Computed example of a mutant assay.
Amino acid sequence: MKNKRNQNVNYLTVNETDELWGLYTTTIGFQVISPNSDYPPKSHPSAYWFSPNTGRVLQEYILLYITEGEGSFESASCKLTKVVAGTILLLFPGEWHTYRPLKGKGWNEYWVGFNGSYMKQLTDNLFFSRKSPVYNVGFNEQIVALFNQGIETANYQKMAYQQVLSGITSLLLGFIFYAEKNNSFRDKAIIAQIDKARMMMREKTGDDVTPESIAKTLNIGYSWFRRVFKQYTGFSPAQYQLEIKLQKSKELLASTILPVKEIAFHLNFESASYFVTFFKSKTGLSPGEYRDKIKGK
């Protein structure tokens, strides 16, 4: 560990228990790269050192957050890209890459290196892709605070510190995914329409309100509404309505003595038998079994 005002670097050990946790950290730190200085610094460990002219290949993931300055990034799957303050780079194991600050600008960088089965699961399910490794999240105090908390945890390396770093790294990944998704919806008018549609669905849970009628009320085309709604929420409008009905049915089963048939009618299911089938497909329990379980019977 090097602990200076403009540099705090940690390279970490990993044991079998850490690997079994599913996400473990190999390095975390912060450093200021001054204008016209060497990059990487001469103090860079040999295992991580590289020439920006030839690049390198690592065997782990790296999140690199640039908070000041500017430079460039390139990888085997991503063409040469300008990097500005507020950019996060996600480096993939086994993927050639290179990056550097502009010589006359320098930059400030936070990073965390990590690996594990959890990250493999995220990439296998396309939450993160080698083809899109650049995230423009802007300056985010929460992300900076997480990096600093991780650096402090690594400085002391108390028992089970790797598990704390795992949680911090997972939160960082969550913030990046959240920022990327929300950056694709910059139009406040579109967001307002989606929010209004969701409010209508929640307020009219038991009414005969269809997604088509909601689109008509909002004076927008249904095909466009369905596409944008799913992009924003992860559900089609009809699926979202069913999820709301599921949550409401759980509330009624837990807090009332209403018969299952009456709950089905109250929530405007087409029949009690359909409600029972739907509920069991979602929870693994019939409505009656769910009520008994929630009440400890």
Rank of each mutant, 00 (worst) to 15 (best):
W111P: 01
K158C: 09
P211H: 06
A254W: 04
P35F: 10
K230R: 15
S75E: 00
T277C: 06
K4R: 12
Y61F: 15
N36M: 13
Q193L: 15
N183V: 07
R100S: 13
A154S: 10
E74Y: 01
E203Q: 06
Y61S: 00
S166G: 14
S166W: 02
Y11Q: 03
T169C: 12
D38V: 11
W107E: 02
V276D: 01
A189N: 12
R226E: 13
I28R: 01
I33F: 10
Y222F: 15
N10G: 02
S281G: 08
R198Y: 04
Q163M: 12
N53I: 11
L285T: 04
Y65C: 00
F278W: 07
P101R: 03
G288Q: 06
L91Q: 07
F127I: 09
S37V: 06
F73L: 03
L165D: 00
Q149F: 12
R226M: 08
P35D: 00
S271K: 03
L64G: 04
F92L: 10
G55V: 05
Y178C: 10
S281W: 05
E180F: 10
V144P: 00
K261A: 04
V9D: 05
G284Q: 02
D207M: 10
V228H: 03
A197V: 10
N15C: 11
D195W: 07
T210E: 08
A145Q: 09
Y110N: 02
R5H: 08
I151D: 04
Y99E: 08
F139V: 13
S77T: 14
Y110E: 04
G104V: 08
G106H: 01
R198W: 03
E70G: 09
V84I: 14
Y11P: 01
K204C: 06
T27R: 10
S34D: 08
L246Y: 00
L242K: 06
T17V: 13
N268H: 12
V144I: 15
H97L: 02
E212D: 10
G206D: 02
N15T: 10
F225Y: 13
H44K: 09
Q157K: 11
W107S: 04
M119K: 04
E70S: 15
F175C: 06
K103E: 12
K105R: 12
F177Y: 14
R56A: 11
Y156V: 13
Q121W: 15
S170F: 09
L12D: 05
V57C: 04
M1G: 07
K230D: 06
G104A: 14
T277L: 08
S34F: 10
R227W: 10
T17I: 14
K230H: 12
F128G: 00
F92N: 03
